[in-house]
Amino acid sequence: AGNLIFKGTARNFNPVMAGAATITVAEVEELVPAGELDPNEIHIPGIFVKRIFQGEKYEKRIEQRTVRQKA
């Protein structure tokens, strides 16, 4: 149905921008069947999303800061 849930810091700016944009294109990590998401957890309702596609070879980049070596 186009409903989106964001994780982490993506929740700061993305919902506001998607609501203000004329066309919202979402590249998603996972597509789930309609009705599987909890309505109370939706950050962007599907009415704001015009295009949606699942990205191929989705790569999660996690930064790890190391200030000292492990003992």
Results as ranks from 00 to 15, higher is better:
P39E: 02
D38L: 05
V28M: 09
A1W: 00
A71V: 15
A20K: 15
K50C: 07
R68P: 02
A34M: 06
Q54C: 13
L37Y: 01
R61P: 01
G19W: 00
G2D: 00
V32C: 13
E56W: 10
G8A: 11
A34Q: 09
I5E: 03
E63I: 03
N12H: 13
K70T: 06
E36L: 10
H43K: 00
V67A: 02
A71L: 14
H43C: 06
R65F: 10
N40E: 09
R51T: 06
T24Q: 08
P45C: 02
E56H: 15
E63Q: 02
P39N: 01
A18W: 00
I52N: 10
P45I: 01
E56Y: 11
P33N: 07
P45S: 05
E59M: 15
N14Y: 14
N14E: 11
F53A: 09
R61G: 06
V32F: 11
Q64F: 03
G19S: 03
I44G: 00
A34T: 07
G2S: 02
R51H: 14
A21R: 05
P39Y: 02
L4H: 00
K70C: 05
F53D: 04
F6N: 08
G35F: 10
G55C: 13
A21V: 08
G35L: 08
I23N: 12
K50G: 07
E59Q: 15
A21I: 09
K50T: 11
F48K: 06
A10S: 11
I52W: 07
E29H: 08
G35S: 09
T66W: 06
K50D: 15
I52F: 09
K70W: 08
R61T: 12
D38Y: 01
Y58W: 08
R68T: 03
N14C: 12
A21M: 06
G55L: 14
N40W: 04
L31F: 08
G8W: 06
K57M: 08
P15V: 14
I52C: 15
N3S: 12
G35C: 07
G19D: 05
K60P: 00
V28A: 14
I23Q: 11
D38T: 04
